[in-house]
């Protein structure tokens, strides 16, 4: 935070100095932003690491490799993967419909796309659990063809998919809106079929946005608690998610163990987002230069 405007030099000097920024308020706004980020993000994360760090490496390893916890990693990761893959496809479709076609109710549909974010996750969880339970609307129909959703890993997938679909829609939508129709027209005038245009022209352009949306969706699903907990059934080794394991440790007043598991989730999410960002940065650089 150092610009000449805090140095108190006379105005005349300032206007002639080369480092003077045109946009005002850089120091103040950056300062507040950093302070806030420290307060709401860095501080709790540091606390978490310190808590988990207090327990020693061996004990840490013991806690995070407990068979029941490991099973919950698997369940959570697989369910989150399935949910985010589903969201990549469905979210792309939604974004496509919202951008490419005109139909009555389009704006309404666009608005309710954000509902999963606005809805308290517990509300979503209870609603989904009710709908998919054996005598719920969907559950009844599905049980007739032998599919059980509530209180199985499939239920976890559905809850995760529901709460994180806006990530994909909202990252793909603006990219799709900015696509120039000329690219598609050029491809068609060169003889490409509609399927080829999508595969070779549209998809490569949308790909970074889809991956980002998918990664956000995945990261969010890893930590989803409220929506999942009501529909998951929570039977050990089968349908327990990580966030539940953390909660269980907390209930046992085993704070270091809870922190240790939480740290594993956090590091995984961070690494994932970092990798995606680096990869995307490279891909976009090839497209847009820089």
């Amino acid at each position: 935070m150092s610009t000449t405007d805090t140095s108190g030099r006379p105005a005349k000097r300032l206007s002639t100095s080369g480092t003077k920024r045109v946009l005002p308020g850089f120091g103040l706004s950056l300062g507040i932003s950093l302070f806030f980020i420290s307060l709401v993000l860095l501080l709790p994360i540091t606390g978490l690491v310190i808590r988990a760090g207090g327990m020693g490496w061996e004990q840490f390893w013991f806690v995070v490799t407990d068979p029941r916890v490991v099973a919950s990693y698997k369940v959570t990761a697989l369910a989150a993967l399935a949910a985010s893959l589903f969201n990549c496809v469905f979210g792309l479709l939604m974004a496509w419909v919202l951008v490419r076609y005109e139909f009555p109710g389009k704006r309404f549909l666009d608005a309710i796309m954000d509902l999963p974010f606005a809805l308290p996750t517990a509300v979503a969880g209870i609603t989904l659990a009710t709908l998919f339970s054996e005598n719920g609307w969907y559950g009844q129909l599905l049980s007739q063809i032998g599919i059980e959703v509530a209180f199985t890993p499939l239920g976890i997938v559905i809850a995760m998919a529901f709460t994180s679909v806006p990530f994909v829609v909202r990252t793909v939508q603006p990219v799709l809106e900015e696509l120039a129709p000329e690219d598609e027209e050029a491809a068609v005038s060169l003889g490409a079929s509609d399927a080829t245009v999508f595969r070779r022209i549209l998809f490569p352009t949308l790909w970074p946005a889809i991956v980002t949306g998918g990664a956000l969706s995945f990261a969010r699903s890893l930590g989803e608690y409220g929506a999942v907990i009501f529909i998951a059934g929570n039977s050990p080794y089968v349908s327990e998610v990580i966030s539940l394991m953390i909660f269980v440790r907390l209930e046992e007043y085993d704070f270091p163990a809870a922190s240790a598991i939480a740290a594993v989730v956090m590091v995984t999410s961070l690494i994932l987002l970092l990798v995606i960002n680096v990869w995307q940065g490279r891909y976009l650089k090839r497209l847009n230069g820089g």
């Binding site: 000329e182 068609v188 005038s189 070779r200």
Partner: peptide, 19 residues
């Protein structure tokens, strides 16, 4: 259809495939 007319078309803003 355009794709069957076999004409070459050049756009003002080139419309090259960026990827």
């Amino acid at each position: 259809h355009v794709r069957d007319r076999r004409v070459g078309f050049v756009f003002q803003h080139y419309a090259l495939f960026r990827h």
